[in-house]
Structures are given as C-alpha cells and as structure tokens.
Write a protein that binds this DNA or RNA. Structure first.
Lengths: 236, 236
DNA sequence: GCAAGAATGATAGTTTTACTATCAGTTAAG
DNA sequence: CTTAACTGATAGTAAAACTATCATTCTTGC
C-alpha cells in the first residue's frame, strides 16, 4: 500500500528528483533542518554539503540554486497541507466544521490527528512549518516571479488556495472573493504567527507559553473571527 | 516654513544621515529607482554607485549594507504614510470616514490629495510603494529580526500600526484585536496587490487596466469588506 | 582668505558566495 | 560483468560584500 501520493512533485522544481536517491533525500531533510536553524539568507550549499558530508557540486546536481531548494520545500509543504485538508474534510458534512479544521491545520494544531504521510516520508513538518512562516514569501517575492510562475512552480500554493476557496463557497455560496479570502487567510495565519513570536507589538497576543492561562490560542480565535465575520456578513 | 517633520529618521537606520548631503540624497533617491527596477536581490552597491557616478565605498559610508538601505527606505515610507494618515484624518469627525481614508492611502489612491511632503522631499512615492509591496517583508523576515527590533528599526511600522489601531478602537471601542487587525490590514493590502499583479490566480481581481469597466478597484472593495465585516460584527 | 576638518574619489585588496568543469572511483542495473 | 549513472574530490571563475588607505576637494570657522 502506497501513501506517497502527496510527494509527486512537479519536475520543474528540481534538476534531479531528490526523492529518488539517498543523497537527494538527505539534501531535502537536512536542508529543512539547516534552513530552519540559520535562515534562508545565511544558508549556503557549502554549509549544507558540509553538514551532510557531501560536496557543493553534488547538491547542484539536484537543485539549480538555493532559491529553487526553497521553492521546492514550500511547494512540498503546500502539497502536504492540501492533502491534509482533503483528508480531514472529506468525511465532514458541515462546511463550517471544514473551515474550522482548515484553521487548525494552518496553525499546525492537533498534530496528533494528522495523516500518516508525515511519518512515512519522515519530513520534519514543524520545521517545515517554521520555514514556511519565515521564508515562504521569498519564494515568490522576486523579480522573476513571472517566469517561475510560468514554470508552474507555485501550482501547489494555487491548488491549496483553490481547495480552500471551494470550501468557502460551499459555506457561503456566491461569495465573490473566495480566492482572495483563501490566500489572505493563509498569509494572515503565517505572518501573524511570525509577528506574535518576533514583533509582538504588531499583534494583540503575547508569545504562547504553556504557563499562560488566559485565552488559549488567541491567534486561532482571531483568525476564526476574521474569517467568519467576512463570510457571515450581509449577502453580495 | 519647514515641512520636513516627516523625515526625522532614527539614527540607527544609517551610518551617516543621507539627508545631510547631496550624495546621501542621491543614494536614497537613485536607490529607490534601482531597487524598484531590478529588485532587492539583484541590486548591489556597485550597480548603485555606477548609476550615481560614485564609488561603492562611498555608499558604505552611509549604509552598513544593502539590507539596512532597504530597512531605511521602508521605514521612511511608513513614517510618510503615518504622517499622511494623521494629516488626512485629523479634520474628520466620522471614524468610519477615517478608516476609508486609510484604505485609500494603503493603496495609494487619490495621490492628488496627498500632502506636500511628497513634493518637498521629491521622493518617488509610487516607486517606494512598489518597493514596499515587493520587498518590505524582507526587512523583518530575517534571522536577525530580534536584534534589529531591539535597535528600533521597525518603530515606524509599529507606530503606523498603533495609529491605525487607535482609529479602529475609535470606530469600535473595545475591539480586542485592534493591533492585529491593523497589521493584517496593511499586509493584506500589499500582498493582495502583489498577487493581483503577478499571481492573479490567487485573487478574484484581474490586473487593473484603465480600460476595464466592471467594478473599479475591486481590491479596495475587498479590503473594505474585510475590515468592516470584522469591526461591525457582534460585540466582544 | 586661509587653515583645519570633513566628505569624497580612486585604487586596491580580502573573504565569501555562487556556480561550473573535469575526471576518477563507486555503485547499480541489465 | 559490463555499461551507464551517480558521487566524490579537486580545482577553478566571477561576482558580491565588504575593508583599508590615502590623496583630493570641499566646507566652514576664524
């Protein structure tokens, strides 16, 4: 039985499929660790090679450059997330409940409930999530977005948005901003998480610490409020 | 009569005040043009120096590095924008109208109504705006946010958020997410503008072209909807 | 008007990144 | 067991990201 449906990646995302060899898998796995640790700009293929015990040139055989590795990692995450959304909402009839699940998934809550693919590919999902929060926008905020887009590099993100937009329309048929609502939901979830951690003055929530009693997960509450207030508002 | 109140910048943002010399001003003005043209990652101090007709080393006397120049430009923009918000909402009594003005300012609508500081400092505001859309998040999405934040580099952004949050609270006293609402409003305005231009599949609006009749400025309409639906929703 | 000090220009250098090329050795597949 | 694919090892280039030095020019205070 195969569970690797998730990881069928677009060929344009790499030079040689990293999932097709031991070295490739280590590049991806250790790449995630290293990028999560020191950040995108501080990371170099040399450092990654040293960490893995290989050479720069070997990494270049898999990925054209560091930016493409980033694009690959976030694309992987979006595909994984879309799969989780699909899996976790499939059995639900209530579309509000579906949206609730999506909110939790965006914040990576209830990891225990997640589908096996995490374990199967042994990708470090929480590390990937923190990369997505800190670095994902650098994947598209470039001068060459248009060409990258033409190569379908952002398809997984678009697919995820489409799926969420579909569920939004299920909840509120005729809502005229389903796609924008979906993309802004995703983005808001991520940079509010970033602000909460690093620039709390830009939010109304302190850093989450286990000891804090008050509202548990105020970010989730905020996102829920934002989403449903816009969807439950007067008809269009 | 001095109108330069806006441009009193934090000393930590530069090594030598660029507004204090002709060369400094050219570094900033031409820096804006170059960064808007080729993007942050493609820009180098060498290219900027060549364009200005000076030397790399001279630019380094003003800014520690390229990232600090970006932070400076973005900070300048936030300060300018906060001033515009202050100026344009000062005479208004209706707080809803204030928020409407803020929405337009975020999208740089009605440039004609803007206050003189634009002309006085002859900064290319539309170019700066496009830099803010494409590059601003790179100012804080780094591994050294915390140190940069400690040096108050993001104070202008925080101040702008605070001001908007204040107006939100004026409109809806007791709203518990004023700061997050303000920061997410700003961010949403910018990346939806980016998506609209470069990744339209992530939005519900096509690229704006003068010939298009339909809903004029759907992004403004969307932002207005998002903002007021959240503020006009049931009490907290 | 001139001397002291600040800013700039010109030149040159270092280290690191980003990438390419080559070839020998090792592994895997038919 | 042979051929093709992959990896390792070494080497190299071009450009980026700085730093240093010193002569020159430009101010500004006296």
């Amino acid at each position: 039985m195969e569970y690797t449906v998730v990881v069928r990646m677009n060929e344009k995302l790499f030079l040689r499929d990293p999932e097709g060899s031991e070295l490739g898998r280590r590049i991806v796995r250790q790449g995630i660790q290293l990028m999560a640790e020191i950040g995108f700009e501080e990371m170099t293929f040399r450092k990654l090679a040293d960490r893995i015990g290989t050479k720069e040139s070997s990494i270049y055989r898999y990925f054209e450059n560091k930016h493409r590795l980033l694009v690959y990692l976030v694309a992987w995450y979006w595909q994984w997330l879309e799969y989780q959304v699909l899996f976790q909402t499939n059995n639900l009839t209530d579309s509000r409940e579906k949206l609730e699940r999506i909110l939790k998934l965006l914040l990576l809550k209830d990891l225990s409930q997640l589908h096996v693919s995490t374990a199967v590919d042994d990708m470090d999902i929480p590390a990937l999530h923190s990369i997505v929060i800190q670095e994902a926008s650098k994947a598209y905020l470039t001068h060459h977005v248009t060409e990258d887009n033409r190569e379908q590099l952002f398809k997984p993100y678009k697919d995820l948005c489409s799926r969420i937009a579909g569920i939004i329309l299920e909840y509120r048929p005729g809502y005229p901003y389903a796609r924008s609502r979906a993309s802004s939901l995703i983005e808001t979830a991520h940079y509010q998480a970033f602000f909460m951690q690093h620039l709390p003055a830009l939010t109304d929530f302190g850093v989450e610490s286990p000891g804090r009693i008050e509202s548990k997960d105020p970010l989730l509450t905020f996102l829920r409020h934002l989403l449903f207030s816009s969807l439950d508002t007067a008809r269009f």
